[in-house]
Every structure is written in structure tokens, then in C-alpha cells.
Nucleic acid binder design. Structure first.
Lengths: 144, 144
DNA sequence: TTTAATTCGGATAATTTTATCCTATTTTAA
DNA sequence: TTAAAATAGGATAAAATTATCCGAATTAAA
């Protein structure tokens, strides 16, 4: 459903949020270890998220990645997915037609409508705070 | 959401169903033209669908692809998707965790639940007959 | 001021997906 | 029986995605 890059990006963001809560920046190394992802590839994805303003970074010793505490609850999954994969998943045509809309629908356009809509709404209404809290409480997991 | 191969596979199957209704087999060439797909690549996908028993083929002059009339309504989108992409879209973990279930959920497991479920149900309950009839009536389109 | 710990960014490699080409095989009609 | 029209299938190529490597730049502490 999502690209590997996007999966890593979401998991990394959650872990960064969790750590930012405690007021500590996390290094690439720590992130990759925690979410079980290849370090160098994860670095590229984090750079991308920084460029898109989803997370922020600090270079040098004691540097790392973080999300300003006050912003954690306003970062939605849709921001991350958009930054990495774009919005094709929930706004593109399910069968790849260039032009697909109500007037000129692909064969599954209407069938997909509610699925697409529910996905979009879910991504736009899920924020990093709730996801991080579930990790903290042990209700959900970032790896294995 | 789906791979290109799967998109082509679905569109091709709908066109084959449409033609089989009229009692005529369609050639690879006609299919690729109708759904606007690369011919040789489409051939591979059709071979795959034949192997999985979704469609049937006849070699030689006047040969081509078809779906037995009586079976058209029983071919579901899920059969096609499964044959080409597998069931990962609606049964795999949204974040790619190897183990992701109610007891050990990934951060978005519950959030994705209804989306995944709706997608699965839609694929399992949509058959080629209805999709073909909408093409026939001009209510939906296979290309552009 | 030097050193160590970091992120950044460019180059490259490996893998997967998408796409093409060519030959073999099958089938029908002339 | 031969020729033409098809699918089947193997080999290969192109493109996209995933992954790795290495040096540059930055920062803080010793």
C-alpha cells in the first residue's frame, strides 16, 4: 500500500515524536535501530521529511532529529505520506487512468470511492501524538 | 495502490469479459490497444491470469483470450488482484511489520482495520459482469 | 583548537518492477 | 501442405525503488 520509504518515514516520525516528548533529540542510528530499517536509506527519508518541514534536524555532536513538542499533535499521517509518496494513494485513479472522475470514471471508480475516502480521512485525522502514546503505553509496536 | 501489472490485469479482464459476452475471443493486440497498455508486458500478465485460471486462452489463428460466459459473474476482482499482486494489500501490515495482529499491532493497525476490511470486501464482492456491463453502457471507461 | 559525533548530499550499487524482443509452438484456412 | 495468425516462454533491457558508501559540513565538548 505504501512504499518502503513511506513505511520507514511513518515509523521514524512516531519514534521521533516519542523521544521529543521526553525532550531528547534522537540520532539516525538510534532511529534505524528502533524501527529496524537500513540506516543510510532511512537518512535519505529523514532528509526528505526535514525538507518538507515534518521534522527538524540539528547537525553536529548531540544533534539529531526532533519535532517541536507543541507541534506533535498537529503532524498528521497525511503530511508524512504526502511528503514521501505523494497523494496518489487516496486521490489518484485506482486503475491508473490519467483522467478519472465522476464524468469519466474508470471501471472501479465508484467502487473505490468509499475506500479512498476512508483512507484519506484516516490519514488526515491521525496525528503523531496518539500514535506515540500508544507506543509508550505498550499498546502498539514499531518492529518485529 | 495496485501495481501497474495489476491495473493492466484488471482492465484486460474486463475487456475480455465484455468480448466473451458477445461470444468472441480477443487477441492480445486488441486488448493492449483497448486498455492502452504495452503489448508484450500485457502478454506476460495474461499468461499469469491463464495459469491462475482466471481467463482462458486459445493458441493459433483465430485464437485469443476469453472467459467462459457462465463464469464471468463469478470472477471477482480479488481473484485477479490475488493472482498478480497477492493479498498483501488487504491482509498485510500497513507498515510492513512481519508480525502484526491484534496482540502485537503496528501503530496504525487499528486505524487501518476498516480501510483494509472495506477494500477486501469490495474486491471480493465485485465481479467482472457488472464492470463489463458498465463499460458496455458507457457508464465507465477503460482508458484515457 | 582539536576531536568526536552528527546530519547533508552526491555517487553508486542492488533489487524489483516494468517493458521489449525474439523464437518456438499451435491452430486454422487456403 | 503450406502460410498466416496467434499464444507461450525465455532472454534481455530500461526504469524505478531500495540500499550503501564516502566525503563535506556542522556542532559541542574536551
Amino acid at each position: 500500500m505504501f512504499s518502503k520509504a513511506c513505511e520507514y518515514g511513518i515509523k521514524a516520525s512516531i519514534f521521533i515524536a516519542l523521544s521529543s516528548y521526553k525532550g531528547v533529540r534522537v540520532s539516525l542510528k538510534a532511529i534505524a535501530k528502533e524501527i529496524n530499517s537500513p540506516e543510510a536509506f532511512t537518512a535519505k527519508i529523514l532528509q526528505d521529511l526535514v525538507r518538507h518541514g515534518v521534522i527538524s534536524s540539528t547537525k553536529g555532536a548531540y544533534g539529531g532529529f526532533e519535532i517541536e513538542k507543541a507541534l506533535i499533535s498537529s503532524v498528521k499521517l497525511s503530511h508524512i505520506v504526502n511528503a514521501i509518496d505523494g497523494d496518489a494513494i487516496y486521490s489518484g485513479c485506482g486503475l491508473g487512468l490519467h483522467t478519472c472522475n465522476e464524468e469519466h470514471p474508470c471501471p472501479v471508480h465508484h467502487k473505490f470511492k468509499s475506500v479512498r475516502e476512508e483512507l484519506r480521512s484516516m490519514l488526515e485525522n491521525t496525528n503523531l501524538e496518539e500514535l506515540a502514546l500508544n507506543i509508550k503505553s505498550g499498546a502498539s509496536f514499531l518492529k518485529i
